[in-house]
Structures are given as C-alpha cells and as structure tokens.
Design a binder for these strands. Structure first.
Lengths: 225, 225
DNA sequence: ATTAAAAAATGATACATATCACACAATATG
DNA sequence: CATATTGTGTGATATGTATCATTTTTTAAT
C-alpha cells in the first residue's frame, strides 16, 4: 500500500524536517511516498541500488547482512532515518532492512534530501547531529558485543527490547532463536540454552516468543561487566 | 609544541575546509591551534570534557577505550577528523585518542566549526559525507570482528597496517602484542602464538615489532571468510 | 656493564561456546 | 486431516581461545 503524503501536516517529522519551511515541506511531499510494510516484509536489500533516503515513521526494523552468517547490525524503532550512510554518497545498500513490526516508511528522493542540506543550514545541522548520535551508538554496540559473554549479551538484548522497543516487561520477541543469535553473535542453540536457564532461575518467563521479564535488575547485572 | 596557523595557505585541508572562503579560513585560523604530538602521547582522554573538533593533519592515531579491558576502536591516518561524533553535540569524549606515530593535530573550537556548518552548505555537506563514510566503515569493522577467527582478524589487521597505514610490506608494528590483542579482541598470548605460526609458515617474518609480509595473498585468504 | 623491569614466547590446562545429533513442537501446505 | 516443513530444546562432544604458570628475550635504569 503506497500513498502520497502531505508533509506540511505530518506530526511525526524528524528533527531535521522540523527545520523545513512550508514551501520546502510541500516540495518534500511531492518527492516522497509513504509505504506500508507488514511485519516480516523486506524494505530494501543489501547490494541493491538505492535512490531513496528512508524515514521510518512508525514500526520496528532490523538492519542486517545477508548470507548464511547473517548478522543483525541494528534494530531500530520509528521515528528515525534508516541508513542515511548507505544512501547518501554511495548508491549501493550495504545491508538489508526488514520490518520486525508493521511499519510506515517514507521514501524520499535522495536529490531533494541533498538539496535541503544545501539550502537549509538547520536541516543539515540536524542531520549531522543524527549521524553523530548513531555513530556513537555503534561504538557502544561494537564494544559491548565483544566484552560480554552470551549471558550478558542476551540479557542486554532482552532489556533493549523491553526498554527501548516495547516499553513493557511483557511482550512477544520479534526474533526467532536463530535471529536472536544473529543479533548477539551466537548460535540458536546457545540462545535456547541461556533462555532456558534464565527461565529456570525465574529471571524471565519464556514460552515460545512470549517473554515476561521478572527480574530486570538481574538482567541488568548480567549485562554490564 | 603549539603554533598558530594560517588556514588560507594550508595544503592539507579537509574536503570540508576546501569549501570555506578566504574570510572563513581566516576566522578558522584564529580559532585553531596546531599541536605536535610525539608517538605515544595522549591526545585526549575518555571521560574528559571536549571543546574542540580535532583534525589530524598527519600521523597515525588510535581511538580506544580505557580500563583493563581496553579496546582499540579505530586506527586512523591523517589527514582526517578525529571523533566529530563525540565533540559535536555531546561534550564528553566517549573514548581516548593516542598517537601511534608523530602527529600534527589542529584543535578547532567547536563553536566556529558549528558556525561554518550553519553558514556554509557545502561545508556541512562534506561533513555529512565524512560521517556517512565513517559509519559504514564502522559497520564493516563490527561485522568482521565477529565473524572471523583470530587468524582471520590478525591477518586482516596486518594487511590494514601494510596497505592503509604504511603502504609497504616491511614496517614496524605500532602496537605491542597486548595492544594488538585489544585491536582484534583477543589476548596478548594468542597474538604471540598466531604471529609465531604465521612466521613458521613463512607467510610473514616477525622479529619483535619488525614485520615483513612475505605472502600478502595468504593473509588475504585467511582474512576473508 | 649490571641489574631491574617490562614485554614476549611457550607449554599446560580450563572453560565457554560451537557443532553435531536427534527428539519434539509448532506451523504451514496440499 | 495428513504430511511436510520449519523452528526449538537438549544432550554429547569437539574446538578455539582464555587463563595460568614459567621461561626467555628485550628494553630501560643505575
């Protein structure tokens, strides 16, 4: 399902788009379509040519590499941009994006995005802020991925879903055991085992993908070394 | 050793600074000092308050976390910016920087840097390009750090030094065994062992820090899975 | 030079985690 | 509904790498 949109009246603008004047917003609306993706849908694929900046209005998306040793690089909840780095200068997507929950995504022509950067200082400024934050986040992730053991990494991931994505301690995991493994760099078997152990210790309660976090403090302790 | 500089005549400007007009370059010169760092000197330290954007004119720098499980996040050769993400919005350095070779570094007031972004679209544009590239690089690193084994990661690191930093296959390693371990996420013992084995297989020749790469193809093969 | 201190090499062992194998459950497909 | 397909749990085993212990080499200090 795709629909044209009116960016002037949009209430989930990015910090950058908030800096655009009404004329620019109209131009944006003409160079932008909103597309709905169902949970599980592929949004864009590693290796393909990219001509749009994608703005995740609402929903949850994973950015990941393909292949047998597929790796989940980032899971992000809207609103926010997906993969500016990939689209901006180079034109090939360096990773894939898949919807983990139903999503509404705006596809913005790279050209108009670039023209805003060149026309509007404040817009550019906000994009820079966004990129800086996202790079710092990546550094964090890079560090935590390698200095925690599986218990720590999995605990961290569960807290991430609970606190950052679903904002509740009782939710359905958006990933299979195998995908969880790809997210925290381990195998599906190890994920199963650790989940089972956390369950038996009454730190969590897990049944299939249904997760209830009983002792968030215990997870917190496991996850920070 | 610190000296004022004339940015108008500087010949190792960043792509961004190339977009500045002569008036802006004069302003830059007044808000900027160049400082020389000897090999081993600390440039800035994790946790400290940062008020400058740092531009590495020449030399080699490592960005790293502190503490017993210190981790080297990135090794970079000038010219190029160091740690814009840290300095830009937030004001606390998220990691430390140390010179691996003698360096000349410009310390630029964050304020003038920001004002250029707001005054000069092309400057902002180039900074965005820079940030995008650096984020993509980080993604790469994140992936390769976790899907290669120690042989692969070390081979990759050796090729990195040879190809990207020193541009020769015969050079002195800028890192101790322990630091190499921090760079590729392993222990000093494992680094020793793998270096010894690569040496015994005549893929490299290592004596102390003196490294000669005999079979770069063999390293290449080991490093890409 | 002589000694002290730090860095590196190397062997033995321990341990976390991957891999393999299979049973079982859940979900899709005709 | 039966059957295939995919996902999951769990035990047994293998393996890479960390850790510990000791020796050797290199570097720095007196």
């Amino acid at each position: 399902m795709t629909s044209n949109i009116n960016c002037n009246t949009c209430i989930i603008k990015s910090s950058a788009a908030k800096e655009l004047n009404s004329e620019q917003l109209s131009a944006l609306g003409k160079n932008c379509v909103q597309i709905f993706f169902k949970k599980g849908d592929v949004i864009f694929k590693e290796g393909t040519f990219s001509v749009n900046i994608t703005y995740l209005r609402e929903g949850v998306v994973k950015l990941h590499t393909e292949g047998k040793s597929s790796q989940i690089l980032k899971i992000t909840k809207g609103p926010g941009y997906l993969g500016i780095p990939t689209t901006f200068e180079e034109k090939i997507n360096h990773y894939s994006a898949t919807a983990l929950e139903d999503c509404n995504i705006c596809f913005i022509h790279t050209n108009i995005f670039k023209s805003f950067i060149e026309e509007n200082k404040k817009f550019a400024y906000e994009i820079i802020v966004e990129l800086c934050n996202s790079e710092l986040e990546l550094f964090q992730k890079c560090v935590s991925r390698t200095k925690n053991n599986i218990y720590g990494r999995l605990s961290h991931a569960l807290l991430f879903f609970s606190e950052k994505i679903y904002k509740t301690d009782n939710f359905n995991l958006p990933l299979s055991r195998e995908e969880l493994g790809n997210f925290i760099n381990t195998t599906r078997e190890s994920v199963s085992r650790v989940l089972a152990e956390l369950d038996s210790k009454k730190i969590i309660q897990i049944k299939g993908r249904q997760l209830k976090i009983l002792k968030p403090e215990a997870l917190k302790e496991l996850s920070d070394v």
